[in-house]
Design a protein around this nucleic acid. Structure first.
Lengths: 109, 109
DNA sequence: ATCGTTAATCGTCGATTAACGATTAAGAGA
DNA sequence: TCTCTTAATCGTTAATCGACGATTAACGAT
């Protein structure tokens, strides 16, 4: 075969980013966002209730408020959800586009 | 409102496992399996090539053999792939059923 | 201006991940 | 048998995750 048997030891710059790499990176990131039971349940909650619930999520999960907030942050940073400030509360809702991206990337396997 | 404002502090047994929980757990686990760029690329590789490649995967990724082996183990334990021993080599292939499960669960959002 | 509510952030801790090199195990072939 | 190849496992290390309580920030209402 004699493929590119480079074992990338020593000085392999490998600076190039193939599109495949970027794609893998994106899917990995989105998959990771929902790779935790608590985050899955949050997504389900936001999916079920039309209303963008806020801190009700905390009541719904057996976790401390700070922990839920962390998970929300992760979901928000991944782009899967959006948070809108409404007075002292914050309403979260799913970002349909990102969710669509995740679905498409998974379906593409 | 007066929902079940239980803050599950103190003595909240919460031993019950709602089906929703189990479902969230399963999705989280499967999503986690592909929540790493290397594992995504492995899945892609197995998806593209009809042939169940084995250690070619190592040549294809910029990772050490032992690291790739770890990722393969994770994918295998999650049920996403199967490994079949063929002489001194091992051929991996995607487990269509598990993949289908992942697709369905993600699509259900 | 002060209070109460809501949610984000900080700091910490233990557990887990990801990566590697080195070693081992299993077969194939000389 | 001995050797080579292939792949899994072991042991280590650094980094990250997940969880928590405590604190802070932002806002509405009194």
């Amino acid at each position: 075969m004699a493929k590119k048997k480079a074992k990338q030891r020593d000085c392999d710059p490998r600076p190039v980013r193939l599109p495949d790499d970027a794609c893998a990176e994106e899917l990995a990131q989105l998959a990771w966002a929902v790779a935790h039971p608590a985050r899955v349940r949050i997504m389900r909650l936001l999916s079920d209730r039309e209303t963008c619930v806020c801190g009700e999520i905390v009541d719904e999960l057996p976790l401390a408020q700070s922990t839920v907030s962390q998970h929300l942050k992760i979901l928000k940073e991944s782009g899967m959800i959006n948070g809108e400030i409404d007075g002292p509360k914050v309403c979260y809702c799913i970002n349909s586009e990102k969710l669509r991206t995740l679905k498409d990337l998974v379906a593409a396997f």
